[in-house]
Structure formats: structure tokens, C-alpha cells
Amino acid sequence: MINLVQILIEGALIGLVYGLVAISFVVIYRASRIVNLAQGEILVVGALVLWTFTLGTAQAGYHIPFVVSIALTVGACILFGLALERFVFRPLISQPAFSIFMASVALLILLRGLAQLIWGAETRSFPAIFMEGGFTVGPFLINTRLFLGGVCTLLLAFGLHAFFTRTRQGLRLAAVAENHDIALSLGISVRWAIAVAWILGTVVATCGAVVLLSGRIISLDVATIGFKALPVALLGGLESIRGAPLAGIVIGIGEVLAMAYLDPLTKGAASGLLPYAVMIAVLLVRPQGFFGWKRIERL
């Protein structure tokens, strides 16, 4: 019993990391209707940028204060997000969905190549931004990094939800998420909204990198988290910020349960397959996910 609860806690915490990355899918999808498959690569680029402004500059002999490093990283992420929108996805506006899909596949490969070109293929350690180690609650051991990351994810999800439903700026973005033509007829700049969405998506992905990698090793393989977060985003609903952490917890718990009970029987395949089995089931049974928008049809 204690073992099971321990597993559930670990699953939920891992799941919240998936949820955080899923939020970065969701903010981009809401504004632009683009499911950016290269989100995992964007996360890795964000992580490498943060490394550059912290340990990288330290190795080169420049010690910059941590706050400045973070500011520089956020600034670089904003520029990166804007550049992706301006040079890759904006020229594709009103092109068929398939062109946009292929563009995101191309971006995925391109970013992998560019990351290797700029930072090299070697693995490096990521600065420890969250406290390492764990703490115990009763008989249960909780990983401090994942716990703090999970708290951040929940705060971010509720914060963004409140932003999108209550503030003037957020409601503009919600209107764009709903329908570009209506938004335009209400004097909302769709271009501005999409640019904001890409900035948010890039910054949130980098937050995901911090939670995932703090005090650990960065390598280009970390990008596979993007493909783990995609089923989470679908299950939560591609338009729903709040759905992402919930779906993350569901899939995270499912994954650790499969790891504990099914993997020994299936040579370790079950836990890897589970998120994608869930993804296909969601697409077949409830394509809008938990809280996604079902198009209201009126005839």
C-alpha cells in the first residue's frame, strides 16, 4: 500500500512536468491552430540558452548575477519565439494544415541540427535552480525539484487561465483562439495575438526545461519530452490551459503504474507505449479531450 501511494505521488509529479510542457503546446495552438511538433526541441534550445547565460558564461570567465542570467534567457526566448512566428509560421498563414504540419516537422529537424551546430553534441550539466534532494511526508519520499516544479505548473496554469478569462489582454487572446475573423472584426490584431502566443509558448517550454533538467544533464535527447507532452495536451484538450496539468497527472500516474506492474511482463514496453495508446483512444473517443472546445454545431 505504501509502495503504491509512493508510486502515485511520483507519477503525479512527473505528470505535472508533462503538463507544463503541454501548456506550451496549448498556448500556441489556441492562437494559431498550429500543433507545433518541434516543441520539445524548443525546450532544448531554451535549456541550452539558459546554460549559456549561466554555466557557459561562467566557464568563459564571466560571472553574471543569476537574476541577470534569467532576464537574458527570457529575452532570448522572446526573440526566439518571435523569430519562429515571423519567419516560419507567419508566411504559412492560410496555407493548408498539411503544409504547416510539415513545416513543424522540418523545424524539429532544423532545430536539432542547429543546436548541435551551435552548442555541439556533448552533454553538459544544467545549473541547479531548484533545491536538490527530497523530503519526507510521513512514510513517503518526495523529490523537491519535481515538487517545486509541480507547484509552479499549477500556479502557472491557474494564472494563465485567469489571464485568459478575466483580463482585457487575455480576452483578446481568447477571442483570437475562438475565431480569427471575429477577432479581427472586433479590432483585435490577430498577428499580435499569434506573436504573443509564440513568445508564451517558448517561455513556458523553457520553464519546462528548468523543472525537468535543474541539476541534471542536458542532451539533445531531452527533446523527446515534447512527444510525451503531446498526448497530454490532447487529453487535456488543445484549447484548455487547465486541462493540461490534470491530463499530465493522469498520464504520469498511468505511466508509473505501467512501469511498476506491466513493464516486468512486457519487457519494459508498456510504460513507453501507454501515452500513445491514450492519445489514439482520445482521438477516437473524445477528440476535444477533457476540457477542449467541442465546436458547437447549430443547424
Partner: peptide, 9 residues
């Protein structure tokens, strides 16, 4: 929210 979007500027 619809009404609020109308007054977004």
C-alpha cells in the same frame, strides 16, 4: 466575456 471583448480597447 463576449461583452468584455467588445470593450477590449
Amino acid at each position: 466575456q463576449n461583452l468584455a471583448v467588445g470593450a477590449h480597447r
